[in-house]
Design a protein around this nucleic acid. Sequence first.
DNA 1: GACTAATCCATGCAGGCGCATTTAATCAAG
DNA 2: CTTGATTAAATGCGCCTGCATGGATTAGTC
Lengths: 161, 161
Amino acid sequence: MKRKPSTEATAAWIRLMRIQSRVLGAVEQDLKKAGFPPLAWYDALLELSRAPGGELRPVELEKQMLIPQYSTSRLIDRLVEEGLAARRECKMDKRGLFVEITEAGRDLQKRMWSAYSTAIERHVGSKLSDADAAKLCGLLDRLGCSCDQATPVPPSAVATR
Amino acid sequence: MKRKPSTEATAAWIRLMRIQSRVLGAVEQDLKKAGFPPLAWYDALLELSRAPGGELRPVELEKQMLIPQYSTSRLIDRLVEEGLAARRECKMDKRGLFVEITEAGRDLQKRMWSAYSTAIERHVGSKLSDADAAKLCGLLDRLGCSCDQATPVPPSAVATR
DNA sequence: GACTAATCCATGCAGGCGCATTTAATCAAG
DNA sequence: CTTGATTAAATGCGCCTGCATGGATTAGTC
């Protein structure tokens, strides 16, 4: 049998889609205007910078960022191309490799976080009290069924889409 | 001066991005598995079907759906190509045109809503009480600064991204 | 009416995504 | 050690998006 959603559920769905799109757009615009690359780059650089030794297997990166395999592969391409990361041989498993963040990568990550955090404050923080932000988190988490990760700050935020 | 976001605000931002992505992905998967086209098509067909005479100027569609101009232009291309809509001459303003939904278009919209509503129930409705869904709406709306439209059901939901 | 500005829509191009497949290496059995 | 299944990563293809631009028409001003 087919249950139909309540109007409340439908309204929540609409808001979730629309508001996310707006807020994401606004934040990405801010970053772009400041001359920075897309948020996905930030996420990847953050994960790498956090990893012990500043290096990670693509598979790990993929799991952290919750993006498909081919997507990480290409993201790494771009990071390497810009000198923000480097591919390194993986001796214990020659199918794979390590991706290591460079100094330029670490530097960019830090500079981006400065602009990024400002944008978050502008488009989210300033519109919600801490208590309300926490409530919002709680409600959203319930939609995430498998709410695995409690990501710490600064955020590996965007599933980039 | 640069204000930094609270950890609550940052956490809310992360959830907003991650959960939206997951829920959207889940709903789109359901639709795709049922053999339907992307959600954006549904939104367009819904707007058209609602419009008086079943026709709309691209400009109107653009405003309703909150997507960029070129995006509507190409979306219309695809709808026309599939026989779901037709371009018609606009006599009062020869720069423009009308897009009119076809019978096939109306039919598809109805069939999609059936699958779509089921998916919304599955991925949103079933996880939140009506009261909580309403709370979520309220909180999200506050992020939308210019909370212009109170969209009615069924939803013109997705800003498709 | 003539000229400039603004509006409506289409489109070429570059880049990114999703899908499916390929290549290479490891693992699991016999 | 050989075979077959599995996993890691890359890549070719088609579609979609964003950006910038172009062509056509209308509106505003004098």
